[in-house]
Design a protein around this nucleic acid. Structure first.
Lengths: 141, 141
DNA sequence: CTTAAAAAGACCTTTTTAGTCCCCTGATTG
DNA sequence: CAATCAGGGGACTAAAAAGGTCTTTTTAAG
């Protein structure tokens, strides 16, 4: 139904690459391995470093690594870093915090609930959960 | 996080208007009451009639009404009618049904689960549920 | 056959997405 | 300190999607 934008998808792939590496990776390397346009990836890495998910160092021995442990970085954070913070809850039907349409706005509640479910799943899923997959379960609820 | 498009939102409002009326409504009427551009609304109504949600009759005593009872029309159907059918599950990371990237694709599962939750809520919510709101509960789970 | 309403499709405008390009800044090393 | 290699960051662009208009056609009722 809802799909990630190309940028967000690239970002997820890039972060997972970095998470799997012991040493810093160059943007160029990630770009090649994941076939993401280098200059576009560069932008995404900027967003991710600003978001506090990645750290990047310049110069010859530079490269990108995780800013925090795998266990503490959620998929939701990656999405937010790329697409901007989630919009605060507003009336679905007129995009304000006021709600002049009394009857119709009942949809608001439903939508809110649906979104909260999704957000919970995405925020509970950490990089470490994605990486264990297939080689040893970690018994996550 | 994810927002309805303007069209989908208009469609929901329009369908709710129709659902509240005993007699058929003209597109013009809905357009005025909901302040939706008339010719744009006209398109949306077409999508909704094609989707089997609304019935429209032409001519002097024409207008739009529900094609099925309020209890049988879900919010999800409205969304699908406007935005096309939900895409079938594919690998999140490369948009095919194959999944060449073994490790990274674990994200697929999570995303799938998150979407299913949302879809379930939206498909269980019928027009009747939205209209009862505030004037008599119907004990829906 | 006139009138009123939806259907349909061509068209247009604005916004968003996806990406490129180029120069700047910071670190390393000879 | 200069060369070089890496990321930072802004301006820019092309293409696609969203949002909306306009005009003509079809259908139904009086």
């Amino acid at each position: 139904m809802f799909r990630f934008s190309a940028g967000t998808e690239y970002a997820i792939r890039a972060v997972l690459r970095v998470a799997q590496s012991d040493t810093p990776l160059f943007i160029r390397e990630i770009s090649e391995k994941e076939t993401i346009p280098k200059s576009f990836l560069s932008k995404l890495v900027q967003s991710l470093t600003h978001g506090g998910l990645l750290e990047a160092r310049r110069g010859m021995h530079g490269g990108v690594n995780l800013a925090r442990p795998k266990e503490e970085i959620s998929v939701l954070e990656i999405i937010e870093a790329c697409e901007g913070p989630l919009r605060s809850p507003t009336c679905l039907l007129n995009h304000t915090t006021q709600c002049p349409r009394s009857t119709e706005c009942s949809i608001h509640e439903v939508w809110q609930k649906a979104q909260e479910g999704m957000i919970e799943i995405l925020s509970k899923t950490k990089l470490s959960d994605l990486l264990d997959n297939g080689r040893g379960r970690n018994g996550k609820s």
